[in-house]
């Protein structure tokens, strides 16, 4: 039971790191980025290549995956996404689906269509027992890394100057511009950071979620659930939504394997019927 809870939390935290960039960009520019998963996939493949082909230590590959994905995100934001902020949602949806398809096909071409694995170092494999609870070492690592990241994010948002600007821009873009905040820059940096986090999540997730070129399509629904259920006005909403989703999914697959993925869809529908604006959204959500 506790093991399932533990696995669920690890899964949920991973989802949070994967999706929180999306939540922030949605909240900030009301931009629907369905290609978010593609940045996560990029991070995953970077780690796999670094570790398996070049022999880079796994733990070192994680920050590299973050940086590389962030750089890719920055380039995309400045060259392509920036043209789409003022366009209708339909255009944003079409455009980002297009990007996903291109990424899927391109990675299929370069890396092959089969699932890839990362060679984990010895000390991250297996489980150990804590008071009878089986704790997977790798899952523990995920919880620690993602937990630290979440705390760091919360601190950045609440304590730093950049965080204050970001929150101001999320609250009211026009007012923020009027106050002399360079919203474009804030957004580019945030987007890059969010993409980097997705890349990091993708790298961490290779072992747990599996990685093949269809990753962005498979996990699109998870990302959407996290941001709609959690709302986009803060990062605590998506955080709890991710945990709910992670625990629900793991527990569902364990206890009622015949229902499988239905558990999360049921959660989604129930939340939607109960709180159409999202579980943790402010009443005046945009």
């Amino acid at each position: 039971m506790l093991t399932i809870l533990f696995d669920g939390i690890a899964y949920g935290m991973l989802l949070f790191v994967l999706a929180c960039g999306l939540a922030v960009t949605l909240g900030l520019m009301n931009f629907v980025n369905l290609a978010h998963g593609a940045f996560a996939m990029a991070g995953g493949y970077i780690t796999v290549t670094l570790v398996n082909r070049l022999g880079v230590p796994f733990l070192l590959s994680l920050p590299l995956a973050f940086l590389a994905s962030a750089a890719i995100g920055l380039v995309f934001e400045r060259t392509l996404y920036v043209h789409l902020y003022r366009k209708p949602h339909l255009d944003q949806v079409l455009f980002t689906i297009g990007l996903v398809f291109m990424a899927v096909a391109a990675l299929d071409y370069v890396m092959g269509s089969s699932q890839v694995y990362v060679q984990l170092p010895e000390y991250l494999r297996g489980r150990f027992d804590v008071f009878g609870v089986g704790v997977g070492r790798y899952r523990l690592l995920i919880i620690v890394v993602c937990g630290l990241l979440t705390i760091a994010l919360q601190l950045i948002l609440s304590k730093t100057r950049f965080g204050a600007r970001l929150r101001a821009a999320v609250d009211d873009e026009r007012v923020a511009r009027g106050m002399g905040i360079n919203v474009n820059r804030v957004f580019a940096l945030t987007f890059a950071f969010g993409s980097g986090l997705a890349g990091l999540g993708g790298a961490l997730g290779v072992e747990m979620l599996g990685l093949d070129p269809t990753f962005p399509l498979k996990f699109m629904i998870y990302f959407l659930i996290v941001v709609t259920v959690g709302g986009t006005s803060s990062i605590t909403g998506p955080f709890f939504a991710s945990l709910l989703l992670g625990i629900g999914d793991v527990a569902g697959k364990y206890y009622v394997p015949t229902l499988g993925a239905f558990v999360i869809y049921t959660i989604m529908i129930v939340v939607l019927l109960w709180r159409p604006q999202g579980l943790f959204a402010r009443s005046a959500a945009r």
Binding site: F95, I97, G98, F101, M102, A105, A106, D108
Partner: peptide
Amino acid sequence: LFWMGLLLV
């Protein structure tokens, strides 16, 4: 799939 994506973009 790639061409379709390109077309959308």
